[in-house]
Write a protein that binds this DNA or RNA. Structure first.
Lengths: 356, 356
DNA sequence: ACCCGGGATTTGAACGATCAAACTAGCGGG
DNA sequence: CCCGCTAGTTTGATCGTTCAAATCCCGGGT
């Protein structure tokens, strides 16, 4: 026969019923050992593969997680973060018997329409929401519809921040910049500047706060912190001109700066271009995200440990060991909100001795 | 009622049979206008969504394309190319009613096993194969099993290169480097060097040949070409030391170089660092891939036009307009091998100097 | 008056799996 | 000897859709 074998064919070959074959695959413990071996042999011999769609139709479980493909951000360096997250997610999802389905969406409304279609069509059991914003309509929709999901990104300032029905995973930016700053302080540097984004971003404020805390712990007062703080949009060229303006033709030392901690690799790249151009190639600059850019340029950077983020995201959907998406708020899920501590990657751009 | 509406519910609401509802969705032209309107109204009113798995079970069509998630290449810049391709693919697939399913695989054998599972489980109709190599076992398997696929990357040197049953899309590297070289020649530069990869890569040889042809057309003889040619592994730091060795402390001019065309942005970055360190920030360097790195550094680069690549890949699977994967070798598919011409993106060539 | 053609619609069966309930042994206790 | 219990297995129904074939309807030709 040319058609693919079905449970019926396997059952016939093994001399058992369809249901027993099904049990061997889905609940092996209820089948007697010798029967199981016989059925397994038939499965192997016929090369049987379960028909995923038939199973889904009956069980209403797809073992698939939907992810909206984040924007193509042509000039930004930051897109790489979501790409890497996607990589890690796919890899660890595979290890837990899940697959990732991508979809595109123009805006939030369109994305919600896609959620509905994917769920109603039994295409996905859950979705991962990325690039969350304050009062995100997608999160509201998912929560009220009780569709399983997990967000990559905290709901900054939302009244629902602690709602266990709205699980999220995020990177602890505060801890990351604090570590980066402490590292520089430990090298004997003192006037460590901050280059962040314009106000209004939860992530940006969080990362700045980490720097501020480390500086405060080293005895720097609030007024001086204000002086050490710069900001620019997340584009290398703008960061560069911001730093150039700050230097105003002076040496960094004369401008009151021993080093710079940045909110992103884009900013760090711009800052590095400015100081190197001004003739201070060893001025320490630390970035955030550990993108290929920082690696190629030998820039120290805070790595987001996206593998841990992906693993945590899956735990929030599947529980610690399961292979099935749990309903929202299920007790099998431990802490529904996870902060992943990032890791400072030190490269040669932060030399052991300060230079001017 | 709390359960999702089915075709049966819609049929009842519209006073027609299940099949007519099905026809409204899949073959509207066979349904009389007024009936169609009535059914459509019922669909909208009930918020009916077809159950994708049930449809797949019956039709044996999944409207899904599988893509193995390309490697996580932590330090390389090049991974960004496949990521961008994936973005474009997802976006254009969506426009043609297709979705992308990701999967992970450890090696080629594992990948083939996944192909089989995905196909037998009716999870995907076709796959896109990336990072192809000479005599790729995956391609052989797909071709002999007659499973629909398209490769991103030419089968360099394979005897099956012209087999219409083995469709591929690729970027015309030759044309890209030729254009980049011609651009520099047009600016009055003459001794344009080549920085490529060590021999043995089809893609590398192709890109080098484009440079060589443009140079030959400008009257440079073979012996001189040999002198102008450098190579390094695809890592910025190695590229940098290769160029430094070539300069040997001299100015680029004294070392016989007016500019450099590179096989990748990683190489270009290394080259740029070397010449800038040597005090020649305006020495023109052109990269390949137009990654965020080159954009951020203001490096000219050859853009692969991955949107066109993705569109072409879908055409090779679906035909010009269809929404269904065609069997391998179907006449609905025009040319089964497509070379996409890339586009030179010119940026200011000396990003690290103050403008002026 | 009859039949024919063909467009529009309906009917029953099938896709391949799992669920729920029923059945069969085999065993021990009363 | 019968009853109940349990572990293991089988049976019939079902998930929601589309296919293939049958049916209905209506106008026109002979």
């Amino acid at each position: 026969m040319t058609a693919l074998p079905t449970v019926g064919d396997v059952a016939q070959a093994a001399g058992v019923s369809r249901q027993t074959v099904s049990n061997v695959l889905n609940a092996p413990q209820v089948v007697r050992d010798d029967t199981r071996d016989r059925v397994q042999a038939a499965i192997d011999r016929l090369g049987y593969r379960p028909h995923a769609s038939a199973r889904r139709l009956r069980t209403r479980v797809s073992s698939t997680i939907g992810v909206r493909l984040p924007f193509v951000d042509r000039d930004g360096v930051s897109g790489a973060v979501l790409d890497r997250f996607l990589h890690e997610l796919a890899e660890h999802a595979d290890a837990r018997g899940m697959r990732i389905m991508l979809f595109a969406a123009r805006d939030h409304d369109d994305e919600i329409a896609q959620y509905r279609r994917l769920r109603d069509g039994a295409d996905v059991d859950a979705v991962v929401v990325t690039a969350t914003s304050y009062d995100d309509p997608r999160i509201d929709w998912l929560a009220t519809e009780r569709m399983p999901f997990v967000a990559f990104g905290r709901p900054w300032g939302s009244p629902h921040a602690d709602d266990p029905g709205r699980p999220w995973v995020d990177v602890d930016g505060f801890a990351g910049t604090r570590e980066a700053t402490a590292h520089l302080l430990g090298r004997g540097l003192r006037r460590i500047g901050w280059l962040g984004w314009p106000e209004g971003s939860g992530t940006g404020e969080d990362r700045r706060a980490g720097w501020a805390e480390a500086m405060a712990a080293a005895g720097v007062d609030a007024a001086e912190l204000e002086v050490l703080s710069l900001s620019a949009e997340d584009v290398a060229s703008l960061a560069r001109s911001t730093v150039e303006r700050r230097l105003g033709g002076r040496t960094p030392d004369a401008a009151g700066l021993d080093a710079l901690v940045c909110a992103s690799d884009s900013l760090a790249l711009g800052a590095m271009m400015a100081v190197r151009e001004a003739g201070h190639p060893r001025f320490p600059v630390v970035g955030f995200d550990n993108t290929p850019v920082s690696a190629a340029l030998g820039l120290s950077s805070v790595d987001q440990c996206l593998d841990l983020v992906a693993i945590a995201a899956l735990e929030l959907l599947l529980g610690d060991t399961g292979e099935r998406v749990l309903p929202p708020g299920d007790p099998g899920i431990r802490a529904p909100h996870r902060l992943i501590p990032p890791r400072l990657v030190v490269r040669r751009s932060t030399p052991l001795t300060p230079t001017g």
